[in-house]
Design a protein around this nucleic acid. Sequence first.
DNA 1: TCTGGGGTCCTAGGACCC
DNA 2: TCTGGGGTCCTAGGACCC
Length: 405
Amino acid sequence: MINNWPNTIAHIDADAFFASCELARNPHLRGKPLMVLGKLDSCILAKSPEAKIAGVTTAMPVWDAKKLCPNGVFIQGDFRYYTLISRQMMAILCEWSPVVEVYSVDEAFVDMNGLRGMYRKSFDQIGDKIREQIKNDLGITVSVGVSVNKTLAKMGCEINKPDGTTIISGRKIDEFLAKIPVTDVPGIGYSRGELLKKYRVENCLHLAKMPQSFVQRLFGKMGVLLWRELRGEISFPILSDPPPPKNIGRTSSFEKPVSDLRMVEGLAFFHLERALNALYRHRMIASEITLHLRNKDFQIYGIPYQFSKPTADFFKIAKVLKSLINQIPSGHIWRSTGVILSKLSDGKSLQYDLFEGAEKALNSEKVDEAKAHINEKYGQFTVRSGSTLYLGGKCKKQSNRMGLI
DNA sequence: TCTGGGGTCCTAGGACCC
DNA sequence: TCTGGGGTCCTAGGACCC
């Protein structure tokens, strides 16, 4: 049988995900402007439709949102709960297709090839059924876009939000692109948008009809990949097995900028534990650590250190971190700090250094493994090192505010 | 826009080698 | 220390995403 859909991908995107999750467990708040915050007195991470109508935007500072919505409901984000709902949403998608790429906490790509025959339904009907099932089971709404590749599926998903299904068939691509500004293409942000404006390329159809040499010259390799997707070709296949991370970083701001290096040390060690928990979860080891700092003018300082061989040993890494903290230039006021573990490799290739004593290394690893196990089961900071106490009683508060305990 | 935290990919250019 | 040209590796920084 001839298949006039050479490739079919769906993009599923939850509508105002964090806010929808809160409304699902607090139905009495429906109809009110609701906003989810990163931490207290910070910025808005998600908002209900009512808050959106009032003019609240994502990343807006809380005090501005309070002016727009004096009677609004402000809720501190509960990322563990959102992760739980996210997993359930992904599980529903896996019931529909064997190939699902989890793209972010609230988004996924689904391989739709062959599903039409299997379910004896149109793509439109399948999209509607998926939305219906997620709404009934989880109490949140999602939007669905279906097209020939990821970029077009994602763009389609955006135009019928919330709670809509959009199909962009191969024949309808040009008609669709003509209505969409170039800055709505995922991969074209502010600066690429500004550049295209100078060439008077404003809608996506215009961009898709430009010669390849033009996009190559302007945006290099990435530009050509995007341009091909706009033309209905495939540059980005679905990755149902996520590749291992290349870096693991954990950073955050201080409540107020600080110059006291003991405060920097406390927060840096706090983030070292978080980063190592993630490293153990992935069963990986790191060859490099960078102490990450940002000053009050938003300039970034990174102080890197290369290990003689890849490691995941807490004590070894903590000692290095301490030495990096001693290298911090004086006379600065810091607004954020953290730790980045990079040059990661598979932990199974870990070789013990005979010269420093295999027994010590094994014991140290046992402690780390037990800690990771407990933290995985009972929460991230059930067991942690004493170094984070430098936060001077603020550690618990800080982590509470990030919704991590 | 007065700015949260966690990532990825690409590119230019310097260091180094023959 | 200057003189060539070509290759590779690495890093910093830009741009973008959610």
